[in-house]
């Protein structure tokens, strides 16, 4: 029986096997032959739908009794869980019920439907072409003389969207003053303050090995654009033993007795660089692990960033507070096309 396709009579064999067709041997399910099993299946389905009703009741009860408000996180979490479980039952009851019904009581042997090629018939295609031609004739486009009409319509349609797009896109960027990327709040004499409370920092507060997260004094009083300024101006202040510090040529007076200040914004794509390792003097950016060597001009020692962190030149004023001597001498943060222009 398994070799029907092999032609035994003539000794010659077919080139290919023939399709045995849709399997005819459909094994009936219990419910197909046994009315008791069918009734049982029906009761099971009804029970699942009943479970759903119960779930809805639970969800509503959980809502009514929910204990939110106040500083009661546990209460919020409990009511969330109970409501969620109620919803789960309400849904899963309907779902499993319907599927169980389909699997036990509904038809389960295959039917066949013909497919038709998607390509339209030749007549339909020819008809489409004819209709388009006729339409084109009615519009006068088909005629060569109407080049002007076609050309002007296409041009008008092509540029008309600009009448909306230009103002729309034009307004998106407000003043479009991208040169703001270049400057921060730091300038000669601005004191360094602690982030976030704004208290000033004296050189004597900064012990060897310590790190301060720094904002410019006055940032918290800004009326506008506080976050934008903060996003550019944040600085890390680090003190190491002056012997460990390898001062960069040309920056001899940018640090003070082993205290250096570097931009906190990664030169890769701009995360705050926050993890300082005292032993190695390495700063790690948690986003993509660019690693900067603070003892050596914050140059990149590992990772996807290319440039060193910009250094903020600092000094100490008469009252002992640390101040900036100038803004950064390059744009902080990630690279952009015209950053050196």
């Amino acid at each position: 029986m398994s070799t029907d396709n092999v032609n035994h009579q003539g000794g010659a064999v077919d080139e290919e096997f023939t399709d045995p067709g849709v399997p005819a041997d459909h094994r009936p399910r219990r419910a197909d032959v046994d009315p008791k099993a069918a009734n049982r299946a029906e009761r099971q389905v009804a029970a699942m739908f009943g479970l759903s009703v119960l779930g809805t009741v639970i969800a509503i009860a959980a809502y009514v009794m929910s204990d939110v408000g106040g500083d009661n996180i546990a209460g919020v979490q409990n009511s969330t869980m109970l409501m969620g479980l109620g919803l789960f039952l309400a849904m899963i009851g309907i779902g499993t019920g319907a599927i169980h019904w389909a699997k036990t009581l509904m038809r389960d042997h295959d039917m066949v439907e013909e497919r038709h090629e998607l390509r339209s018939s030749d007549e339909a295609r020819a008809g489409a072409v004819d209709n388009l031609k006729e339409g084109a004739k009615d519009s006068g486009i088909g005629v060569g003389r109407r080049g002007l009409l076609k050309g002007s319509l296409v041009t008008a349609l092509a540029i008309a969207p600009l009448s909306v797009l230009v103002p729309a896109i034009g307004n998106l960027g407000g003043d479009w003053n991208v040169s703001k990327f270049r400057h921060t709040m730091w300038k000669q004499g601005v004191r360094l303050a602690k982030d976030p409370d704004g208290s000033l920092i004296k050189a004597s507060d900064v012990t060897i090995g310590s790190v301060f997260h720094v904002i410019p004094d006055g940032l918290t009083e800004l009326e506008h654009h506080q976050l934008e300024e903060k996003a550019k101006a944040v600085v890390l202040l680090i003190r190491m033993s002056p012997d460990d510090l390898n001062v960069q040529p040309g920056r001899e007076d940018w640090s003070f007795d082993g205290i250096v200040a570097y931009s906190k914004i990664c030169t890769h794509v701009g995360c705050p660089v926050a993890l300082y390792e005292q032993q190695t003097h390495h700063l790690l950016c948690p986003c993509h692990q660019s690693t900067f060597d603070v003892a050596n001009g914050a140059k990149v020692v590992f990772g996807p960033a290319k440039r060193a962190l910009p250094q903020l030149p600092i000094a100490v004023d008469d009252e002992g507070y640390i101040i900036a001597k100038d803004d950064f001498n390059e744009p902080i943060g990630p690279s952009y096309w015209e950053r050196l222009k």
């Binding site: 869980m81 479980l85 919803l87 899963i92 499993t96 319907a98 599927i99 389909a102």
Partner: peptide
């Protein structure tokens, strides 16, 4: 029945994840 039921199963499973 199967696909309609399956919608409720998917919803139910998401609700369960969200609850727990």
């Amino acid at each position: 029945a199967k696909a309609g039921g399956f919608f409720f199963v998917v919803f139910g499973v998401i609700a369960l994840l969200a609850a727990v």
